[in-house]
Amino acid sequence: MKKGAYAFLLLVLIIVLLASLFASGKPDGLEFIAEQLGFIHKGVESKSLLTDYTFSPIKTEATSTMFAGILGILLCLGTIKLYTTLYRERK
């Protein structure tokens, strides 16, 4: 990767870390409507590593949210890298 790409990735990670400090603990739009209309109890909680924008093995909520954001970015970048690598091989 080029030097500029590393700087951009670092900037994105810093933004995610700072933005995660302002994440709301309130329910998102779908959960809010489900609560208002009375069918929130019909929802099924899933067991995953990134439930509710947190990383479940980490117990501190702020740290868990930050880590989940970084992990999400890395997963997206990995998917993009995989796609572009496969696409180039097809040409």
Rank of each mutant, 00 (worst) to 15 (best):
I80F: 15
V44K: 14
P57H: 06
T51H: 14
D52E: 02
L18H: 00
I70N: 06
P57A: 02
L49T: 00
L82M: 11
I80Q: 05
K81Q: 07
S24L: 12
H41N: 15
P27T: 01
M1L: 10
P27N: 03
T60S: 11
L82E: 05
I58W: 02
K81R: 15
L82Q: 01
I58D: 04
V44G: 07
L21A: 09
A68Y: 14
T65D: 02
T65N: 08
I15Q: 05
E35T: 00
E31R: 14
D52M: 11
Y53A: 02
L17M: 09
P57I: 05
L17H: 05
T60Q: 05
S24P: 02
L75Q: 00
L77A: 04
R88M: 02
F55V: 01
L13T: 07
I40K: 14
L50H: 10
T84E: 13
F67T: 11
I14M: 15
S48A: 07
I33K: 04
L75S: 12
D52P: 00
G69A: 04
L11V: 09
G38F: 07
L9A: 03
K47M: 08
L74Q: 02
G25L: 14
K81C: 08
A7S: 06
K59H: 14
K42E: 12
G78K: 07
G43K: 10
L10S: 09
G69Y: 08
S64L: 07
P27G: 04
I14K: 04
K91C: 05
G72K: 10
Y6I: 08
Y53G: 03
T85H: 12
I14A: 15
G4W: 10
S20Y: 15
T51E: 13
T79D: 02
K26L: 13
I15L: 11
S20G: 01
S64Q: 09
Y83D: 01
L9N: 00
V12L: 14
L86R: 05
Q36E: 12
T51S: 15
V44T: 02
S56L: 09
V16R: 00
L50G: 00
L49Q: 08
L10I: 04
H41V: 04
G29A: 13
I73Y: 07
Q36I: 12
A5M: 09
I15D: 01
I80N: 10
Y83Q: 13
M66K: 01
T63F: 13
K2S: 15
K42H: 14
F67M: 12
A7Y: 03
L75A: 08
P27H: 04
E61G: 08
G43R: 00
K91E: 13
R88P: 03
K26E: 09
S56Q: 10
V16Q: 04
P27V: 03
K81M: 13
Y6C: 01
F67Y: 13
G4P: 00
A23P: 06
P27Y: 11
